[in-house]
Design a binder for these strands. Structure first.
Lengths: 208, 208
DNA sequence: CGCCGTCTTGACCGACGGGTCAAGTATCGG
DNA sequence: CCGATACTTGACCCGTCGGTCAAGACGGCG
């Protein structure tokens, strides 16, 4: 038996984790998410993440091959969760406008629920170390929305204009409102429900 | 005469620059703007800026006390220019909706003209070293728009809803569309004029 | 020409932080 | 009780990068 079999994973990122190991990993992910959110990616030291999670620095590399890998995992997890939230909020049999409005509303609520995480997506977009992962998902939502917009245009419920422009507008509205809400630019007297309702109305208004 | 007079400016950021000196400074500012835009603030090394500007690293500190200071100057210059562009585009005697639409259109054109610069504002929002400068101006535009919105609501031309929400929506639309245009998400077949017209229509539609 | 202030250089310094490593501890199946 | 495998530690290494500095070059003015 050659020694290659075991060596394959020595340095690799795929390790055999126990239940407890996965829990640790999640702790690190959580700590990192919070720190990234309010200090930025590059301003967050691996040592900070470990301190926040209450472990030694060396342990970081047991779970992640590099800082960027953790970031990528964080982003992908988040993206998955958001899409799931959108999916369950949208009734596939409803008309295009309703579907978009439902998706937008769900996104706003989701982003408000996970404010710490979403401050991230909004940040460090250009750091080459992370740009790829971020860009990778940027077009996905756009495509989702554009498809529905075109659907709506075929049935005449959505105004006739370049579908990608409209999609950008919808996505932009969701993220703008969510961002402003998150960093308190809207004041404390407005609730998530208020915001969600307003965005729904705003989007519907923009589509016609 | 005490020696304090000359010493005051030794380390300070205010230096006596000749015409040629100011030109140099502008070169550095330009080079930095471009590099920041496509690599991010923290990923851009001072050495990179100097290389791009074709000067030695030491010279950087003849013109700027620190990296952050250059950034701050860049941002403030940009903000000033944008506000000026908006100001000249908006007829103070026109009604609120027209004023907002004009301002939005002008902003879109301006951002397209200065794409390299504006990739910046969108980036590294959370880097503590630069967060202050960025946040400092964030509320300004919001206030500008909100005032006009409230004006329009008084005269009944703008829908009755929290004015800050509406202002966030307008600002968000402008930046979303500009961003998408800048990084090519809208395809090459769309021109700035198309975009500007579309945003105008979008904003007007959203206000009523 | 000689002085002075502006401008320019590139070698150098220091710390900061990502990543490594050798030495453990904890747990579990046999 | 033994060995294997997952986990944990903190000292250490080392490249990188912001910032300094001493030595000049250039240009105008008396």
């Amino acid at each position: 038996m050659s020694s290659a079999d075991t060596e394959r994973l020595d340095t690799a990122d795929e390790r055999q984790h126990t239940e407890h190991g996965l829990e640790r990993k999640r702790q690190l992910l959580d700590a990192a998410g919070e720190l990234f959110a309010d200090r930025g990616y590059s301003a967050t030291r691996i040592a900070d993440i470990c301190t926040a999670a209450g472990v030694a620095k060396g342990l970081f590399y047991w779970y992640f091959p590099t800082k960027g890998a953790l970031f990528a995992e964080l982003v992908r997890t988040m993206r998955l969760r958001l899409r799931r939230a959108q999916g369950t909020a949208m009734d596939p049999t409803a008309d295009a406008v309703t579907r978009i409005a439902d998706g937008a509303e769900a996104s706003v609520r989701f982003m408000a629920d996970h404010a710490a995480y979403f401050a991230l997506l909004d940040v460090e977009r250009s750091d080459p170390e992370v740009a790829d992962v971020l860009a990778e998902g940027a077009g996905v939502y756009l495509d989702d929305v554009r498809r529905i917009v075109e659907d709506g245009q075929r049935s005449g419920t959505i105004a006739d204009a370049p579908s990608d422009l409209i999609a950008v507008g919808v996505l932009g509205a969701v993220s703008s409102f969510s961002n402003s809400y998150r960093n308190g630019r809207l004041g404390d007297d407005i609730t998530v429900d208020d915001l969600a309702r307003f965005v729904r109305r705003w989007v519907i208004n923009a589509l016609r």
